[in-house]
Design a protein around this nucleic acid. Structure first.
Length: 207
DNA sequence: GACCAGATATGCT
DNA sequence: GCATATCTGGTCT
């Protein structure tokens, strides 16, 4: 089910996104009829055609925050953040990396949540193949997970209710706890507690 | 753990 | 025109 909490402030959305799934359908030309196998992300005889990851780390950004891309107002680059909630704001940085944000709040207010790390649920082989490495290193960073999910500028402004990729609500596992910390990799407003993580999850980014 | 190169879109002066 | 960037991967210590 598509999350219903997205039209709220960035902090609420960033927190509520923890545990949710991002589902990326792949076009491998498979004929109709293998839906059951595909549901698990594993298909006999050929590679998985579906990648599912679980969000374990997010950061909140909004228009009132000096560290946010929207702090100086709407521009051609950040216009998606000012659009309706639940869409993809994708930015290109350091000349080679893409990062994914889920837009939050109401239309006209630039806010969103950066997805910083995810945990693979299905389609691990595809992820490892794309990343050219194995284990936690595949998806424990905002640009790493974009590469793993094949997310780039072509998905800018994409409505995340629709595949690919789509966002699906899921609960935290029993015993899991949310921790709030200062954000990573920014130079302004570094003291604000706007990073949300599933405490102790091995897929969290480190820096 | 610290340091640095990589390559370019963006926004500010 | 120029500094900076919601970063990663490789190298060196």
């Amino acid at each position: 089910m598509f999350p219903q909490f997205l039209a709220q402030d960035a902090d609420t959305v960033a927190r509520a996104l923890l545990g949710c799934h991002i589902v990326r359908l792949l076009d491998d030309g498979c004929a109709v009829g293998c839906a059951d196998e595909h549901a698990t992300g594993r298909v006999a005889g050929h590679a998985a055609e579906r990648i599912v990851v679980r969000i374990v780390e997010t950061e909140a950004y909004d228009q009132l925050d000096p560290a946010s891309h929207t702090f100086h107002g709407k521009s051609e680059r950040n216009r998606a953040m000012f659009g309706p909630a639940g869409h993809a704001y994708i930015y290109f940085t350091y000349g080679m990396h893409y990062c994914l944000n889920v837009t939050a709040a109401t239309e006209g207010f630039g806010a969103g949540a950066l997805i910083r790390a995810v945990e693979p649920v299905a389609g691990v082989e595809i992820i490892e193949q794309r990343r050219g490495r194995k284990g936690v290193d595949c998806v424990n960073g905002p640009a790493k997970l974009c590469k793993a999910l094949d997310i780039d500028k072509s998905l800018y402004g994409h409505d995340l209710r629709l595949p690919p990729p789509s966002l699906e609500q899921a609960e935290l596992r029993s015993g899991e706890r949310i921790e709030v910390t200062p954000r990573i990799g920014i130079s302004k407003a570094t003291e604000r507690q706007r990073r949300f993580v599933i405490a102790g999850n091995p897929y969290l980014s480190r820096r």
